[in-house]
Amino acid sequence: MEIVIALVIGSLTGSGVYLVLRARTFPVVVGLTLLSYGVNLFLFATGRLLTGAQPILGSTDQYTDPLPQALVLTAIVIGFAMTAFVVVLALRAQIDNSDDHVDGKTNTSESQEPGDEHS
C-alpha cells in the first residue's frame, strides 16, 4: 500500500513539475493544481495510512493522526484560493498582453537564441 501511495505522490509531483515548467499560463495552473494534490497527499500520508480509523471519538477503537488532516484541510481550501487567484491573474495577463505566455510575451530572450527552431 505504501508503494502505491508513494508512486501516486511521485507521479502527481512529476506531472505537476513538468507542467509548471511550460511556457503558457493554463498548463502552469493545471500543473500547480496537480502539484498541490501531491503535496496535500504527502502531508496527509505523514499521518500514516490506516483504514477505518477516522479521528472521530467513539466511532472506532483506533484513531489515525488527526493533525495532518487538519493541516491538509485548510491547505486544500487555501490551495483553491491560490489556484483561483493564479488563473484570474493568467486571465488578466491574457487580456492585457493579448498573449498567454508566462513571461508576458512569446518572444523572450530564450526563443531568440540563435539556432532556435520553432517546431
Partner: peptide, 8 residues
C-alpha cells in the same frame, strides 16, 4: 517525482 516517491 522520483525524489518524492522515495521520500514518501
Amino acid at each position: 517525482g522520483g525524489g518524492m516517491t522515495l521520500i514518501t
